[in-house]
């Protein structure tokens, strides 16, 4: 009986922690989704798209994907996900963004953590941006 209870506790805790992640994600993702969807119906999206197209082209991404990278690095992965979901991107483009964001996201918060351990901020950011760019180019070439 005791055993059964702990099992239920484990399941409940796992469920709640999954729910909590979903909730935390929703709080950030929904506003970003709304903002990007509204942007999509204004000329601003074209300015962003055209402005970033040359740079993003190296990564095999459309210009508007810059929104995803900016959101992911200044806010967090959940904001990036909101932008990915609202833009019309192909699976390959999402995969490229996914590997780039895996290496490099939430720079403000996570760099602060790395600094606590004693690494310099510039060091950590350079490594992460470098890994993101190289992996993005590689995914674009090989996928």
């Amino acid at each position: 009986m005791q055993n059964k209870c702990t099992w239920l506790d484990t399941l409940k805790r796992g469920f709640m922690s999954g729910l909590k992640i979903t909730w935390e994600l929703s709080k950030i993702m929904v506003p970003v989704y709304f903002i990007v969807t509204i942007l999509k119906h204004t000329p601003i999206i074209n300015w962003i798209s055209e402005g970033f197209a040359p740079l993003m082209g190296y990564l095999g991404l459309p210009g508007e994907a810059a929104i995803v990278l900016v959101m992911g690095n200044l806010v967090n992965l959940y904001a990036a996900i909101g932008a990915i979901a609202s833009l019309n991107l192909t699976l390959k483009e999402i995969s490229i963004l996914a590997i780039m964001l895996s290496f490099c996201h939430s720079l403000l918060v996570e760099t602060a953590l790395a600094k606590k351990i004693g690494l310099s901020a510039i060091n950590v950011i350079a490594v992460r941006v470098g890994l993101a760019v190289v992996s993005g180019i590689a995914f674009n070439l090989f996928l």
Partner: peptide, 19 residues
Amino acid sequence: GSFNSIKQIAFIVIPLMIV
């Protein structure tokens, strides 16, 4: 759109966290 994306993510994240 955002509701559907959240639903999709929840279906993967919740089982993962239970595991």
